[in-house]
Nucleic acid binder design. Sequence first.
DNA 1: ATGAAAGCGCTAACAC
DNA 2: GTGTTAGCGCTTTCAT
Lengths: 338, 338
Amino acid sequence: MPETPSRSKATRNDVAALAGVSTAVVSYVVNNGPKRVAEETAIRVRQAIEMLDYRPNAVARSLKTGSIKTLGLVIPDGKNPYFMAVSTAVEAAARQRGYVVLSASSNLDPDVESAHLNVFEARGVDGVLLSSCVQGAALTGQAIPGLPMVFLDRSTAAGINTVGVESRAGAFDAVQHLIEHGRQRIGLIIGEDEYVTGDRDRISGWRDALGAAGLPEGPVEFGDFSLSGGYSAGVRMFARSDRPDGLFVSSDQQSIGVLRAAWEAGMRIPADVALVSFDGIAESAFTCPALTTVQQPIGQLAEAAVDLVLRTAQQSSEIAHLRFSGDLAVRESCGCVN
Amino acid sequence: MPETPSRSKATRNDVAALAGVSTAVVSYVVNNGPKRVAEETAIRVRQAIEMLDYRPNAVARSLKTGSIKTLGLVIPDGKNPYFMAVSTAVEAAARQRGYVVLSASSNLDPDVESAHLNVFEARGVDGVLLSSCVQGAALTGQAIPGLPMVFLDRSTAAGINTVGVESRAGAFDAVQHLIEHGRQRIGLIIGEDEYVTGDRDRISGWRDALGAAGLPEGPVEFGDFSLSGGYSAGVRMFARSDRPDGLFVSSDQQSIGVLRAAWEAGMRIPADVALVSFDGIAESAFTCPALTTVQQPIGQLAEAAVDLVLRTAQQSSEIAHLRFSGDLAVRESCGCVN
DNA sequence: ATGAAAGCGCTAACAC
DNA sequence: GTGTTAGCGCTTTCAT
């Protein structure tokens, strides 16, 4: 009959004592090395571990080894399904490599973002994945010396690791698809900051596709990357006198809001205005109509990002800019299906 | 002109040396105690900290103090906006109290769930919040001796801390609202048993409201708590010969799928069938029609849960079962607005 | 094959 | 007011 496990946590000392060996030996069997242990002894140790319900303390271990097998992740908006998907994918990739992830949302506040980064650093994370809410020069300012870091979903920037999608190409394809449907006045709904600052790839894609087809630029409305941001931009867009017959929206989350705005305005999608968006979140397949959208390869992005931080953590020399391309998932909002 | 900060991380020893004081004093100024330090000395120390860009190592600290100011959270489905909202709220509540949260999704796999729990335990988290994917007796099995833990969104269970919503009351109100709209055949779309215990209560609420009004139980279809789960349940529901004229759906995420199924079936909501659901996720206000739903007080839940684990971590005696009530957010899917 | 012991970076008595 | 020092739980070199 097993003893009642002691109330307080057993330490490696207790195990050593019970098994009648030194603490070093316990270490060897727990870690399967670096020294070999006689099978007999190992068995005694394992029994002691079992009896005491001993669980190694990873924190203490990390103090010695320097790695706590933890990655930090900060996303700009914990309520956007796209970033949830990123989180999930990053967690999975990390888990597969024996890491766990500490994650946090900055809610679009740069100060919160850097506070998170500092907390992670203090916790001794092995590296950080950052989908920042700041841009351009400020971005580099978020870096913490000595902390391996990769930026998610940002344009190439000097001196820092980045992984992201080929936004320009994706946007180009999306708009081209609209053009193939014969749409002539193709508008744009996009995040304000994206327009104003750095990452203008989605805009270039839209503009270039139009240019390539000899079409003029349609109306543009801004709204943040949220349901309500898309909704209000949509309301404004559909109230315009130069209402478009095609629309490229910079994210699915916004598109859901746009769909709602269209519904309220009595605008039929895709009959009156065909719509294509970006991201490929799960909900894009369940809207009415379902969204034709540029599907981001989130799994690939996450794996690449995790591999990259981990590599950086080992030999911090390399700086990489990884880009993956998204495919257009053709559904109903573009007019392909009725 | 400031020195170039050293490449390798500065430790408390370096600071002490630079400031010409002992490590204890550095500790005192960093932690603002427990001893007082002469203002002059403190200034020297702070300058040294600044110069060396010294950042205290929270891990080493926790080895001494026993607390690493970290909470663990495991949710069953990282892709459900409801759980994302829970995550976000828990993070916020924890942050406010000086804690960060390590979070993970079990993706409905009990083994993954307990693996996460073990990893958290080994990381020395101060407590865990668990929205489990297992039920009943198995639930208690997930507990780790000595690890403060509170279950989220679970029915009262013996011996364990829980915080959740008044599901039965919420469901009752929802169904009653449908009845007030004159609906007579009120169906139910709900999760398969294994997912959420809240189910039981949601079912009772539906049944009781019907009973109270002297109405018979309408058709029931099962689907998991996802977009596609709701979608397929909806497809089946609308294909039935005893199609309902009112529908209570156990979560907003499912409702979005149901809306899609209705749309495909040419069923008008609320004209043909009025719908009320549960959760109050952000997207429920942007569907077409917008969802009338029982709004969960997620912020309250999160705060209560965090407070409860923290309290448990201090004196592990108390066992509490906290329940909060949700309010019906009346929108369009019930027929109140046209 | 095993053990002794020196820390990892930090805290907090306990001296002075 | 400040310094010394003994660990927290673990890993690992260097003996034996």
